[in-house]
Simulated scan of single mutants.
Amino acid sequence: MDYVMAFLIGGLICAVGQILMDATKLTPAHILVLFVTLGAVLSGLGLYQPLVEIGKAGATIPLTGFGHTLVTGVIEDVNKRGFLGIFTGGLTSAAAGITAAVVFGYLMAVLFNPKSK
């Protein structure tokens, strides 16, 4: 059942993004910022965690999950380190994902020799 819920929640988030791209003049960059911000705001208000508990990876993998990860890290670090946690928490919690994106992006660029248009 976890797989089904992850598929439904993740699919719903992606469908909303696709509808926004098709029905509005928002660019993919605008939608990226909107989703990360929405995930952060919902997480800060305590509304995103129940979605994560239901949808698991379906809620944490899309862009809204990145905003959730940043805010969760900041909240944890503020509780541990105080004011300094505002600056270190988000980076600490998202470091593995950011590092993986940079490393794999670099490897793909080296292996497949991309050409500009």
Rank of each mutant, 00 (worst) to 15 (best):
M1H: 09
D2C: 05
D2N: 13
V4S: 15
V4H: 09
V4P: 02
V4Q: 12
M5N: 06
F7Y: 11
F7R: 04
L8N: 09
I9G: 09
G10N: 07
I13L: 09
A15N: 05
V16H: 06
G17L: 00
Q18A: 04
Q18N: 06
Q18H: 01
I19W: 03
I19L: 09
I19A: 03
I19Q: 02
L20T: 10
L20Q: 06
M21H: 06
A23E: 10
T24I: 05
T24D: 07
T24C: 02
L26W: 05
L26D: 04
L26R: 02
T27W: 00
T27R: 00
A29Q: 12
H30N: 15
H30E: 07
H30W: 07
L32P: 06
L32A: 14
V36A: 08
T37P: 06
A40S: 15
V41D: 11
V41P: 08
L42R: 05
L42K: 07
S43D: 15
G44K: 08
L45M: 14
L47M: 15
Y48Q: 13
P50V: 11
L51F: 06
I54H: 02
G55A: 00
K56M: 12
K56Q: 14
G58A: 10
A59T: 07
A59F: 04
T60R: 14
I61R: 06
P62N: 09
P62Y: 07
P62W: 09
P62R: 09
L63N: 15
G65V: 07
F66T: 12
H68K: 05
T69I: 11
T69C: 06
V71C: 00
G73W: 00
V74M: 11
E76P: 00
E76L: 14
D77I: 01
V78K: 09
N79I: 05
R81Q: 07
R81E: 07
L84S: 13
I86P: 02
F87P: 11
T88H: 07
T88N: 08
T88F: 15
G89F: 05
G90A: 11
L91S: 13
S93E: 03
S93F: 03
A94T: 15
A96F: 10
T99P: 02
T99L: 11
A100I: 14
A100T: 14
A100M: 12
A101Q: 01
V102K: 01
V103D: 10
V103A: 12
V103L: 14
V103Y: 06
V103T: 10
F104Q: 01
F104H: 03
F104R: 00
F104G: 00
G105C: 11
L107C: 03
M108D: 14
A109M: 13
A109T: 12
V110W: 01
V110P: 04
L111E: 02
F112G: 02
F112L: 12
N113D: 12
P114V: 13
K115N: 08
S116L: 15
